[in-house]
Amino acid sequence: MRDLSIDDPLEDFTPRDFHLLGKSRRTYVSGSGPAVIVMAEIPCISPHVARFARWVRDAGFTVYLPHLFGRDGAAPTKAGALWTLGGACISAEFRAFAANASSPATQWLRALAAEAHSECGGPGVGAIGMCFTGNFALSMMLEKSVIAPVMAQPSLPLNNAAGMAIAEDEIAAIRTRMEAEDLTVLAYRFEGDRLCRAARFAAFQDALGDRFQPRVLPDTAANPDAPLKNPHSVLTIHLIDEAGQPTLDARDEILRFLEMRLHAAG
C-alpha cells in the first residue's frame, strides 16, 4: 500500500503531451478499456487523486489525468493548497467566481475527451471532477462522447452557494441531451461541507430534474484524520478505505456507473 503522505512519482502512468485547440497540456495515461477523464482537485494530482485514478484503471478503464494546476504527484499541504488556489482563481482558464459561466478550461477538456474516445473506442467517455473541477464534469457533456459524468463536491463558484458555474444555454442544452439519450449525472457531497452547500445541489436539481442524482453523505463518514477538517473530499482525503464505509461505497457506486455506461452499453 502506498504512503499517501509522500509524493507520488506516478511511475505507472505514461506522461503524454496532448496538443488540442492550440494548447499543449501534460496528461498522465494508464490502463486499457474505455476512457475516463479524472480531473484533480486543488492542489494537484495528489497521491489521493492518483489512488482514485488507479481504482478506476483497475476496474477496466483507460484513465486520463490532465495537469490542470499545482505540482503533479505532490503530497497535499495547506500552504500548497492556498498557493494553488490563489493561482487558479486569477487564471484566465478558470472562472472561480462566475455563477453563470463555464470555465474556459472545459473547452480543452472536451477536446481531450473526444481524443480519448478516438483512442480507446467504446460507447463513450467518463468524466469525473472534484472540488474546483467538480462542475467541469457536467460542462463536458457538451462533447457528445461524454456519457458518464460524475461531480464530486462541485465547489464553483466560490462566492455563490447556489451558483452552478455553467452558462444557462449550456445547461439547457445538456438537459436536452440527457433526456434524449437517457443520461444521468452522479453528484456527491458531505452534508456539512462549507465549500459545496445544499443550495448548489438544489440548483442542479432544479436545472436537471431527475437527471441529476445527488448523494449526500453524513459528516461522520468523513475521515477524521484528514488534514482538512471541513468534510469535503468524498473520493480522496476524506475517503475511508474500509469495507462498509459510506465513502468507499460511493467509490464503488461510481465504478458501477462507469461499468454500466462504458462497458455494458458496448
Results as ranks from 00 to 15, higher is better:
I174Q: 09
T176I: 15
F13W: 08
I45F: 08
V56Y: 00
T62I: 03
D8Y: 06
L20D: 11
V125T: 00
F204A: 13
F212M: 03
G244K: 07
A75Q: 02
F69S: 01
A202H: 15
A152L: 09
D225I: 08
E93Q: 15
H48W: 07
R2M: 14
R261H: 03
S102P: 08
G192N: 08
R175H: 15
D7M: 10
R211T: 01
E179C: 05
L186P: 00
A59Y: 07
M164C: 12
I6M: 13
P15V: 06
P47N: 07
L109C: 04
A88N: 03
D58E: 05
A88Y: 12
F61H: 02
H48S: 05
H232Q: 05
A127G: 00
D8I: 01
C131L: 05
P218L: 03
G209M: 02
I174F: 14
A101Q: 10
I45Y: 08
S32L: 05
P224A: 05
F257N: 01
G266I: 01
L248Q: 10
T62D: 13
V56L: 04
D12M: 03
A35F: 05
D252I: 13
I254G: 00
Y64C: 00
D225K: 14
C120P: 05
T62P: 04
A111T: 01
P224F: 12
L208G: 00
P43L: 06
L21C: 08
T133G: 04
Y28W: 10
T236D: 10
A264R: 13
A98D: 08
P214Y: 03
P123T: 03
R189M: 02
T106L: 10
L68T: 00
L258P: 04
R177K: 14
R177F: 14
E191P: 12
T62M: 13
A250M: 04
G31V: 00
A203P: 11
A243N: 15
I240L: 11
A88M: 15
N159M: 09
L112R: 06
L156N: 01
A226K: 01
L142G: 08
E242S: 09
T247M: 08
R71G: 04
T220W: 15
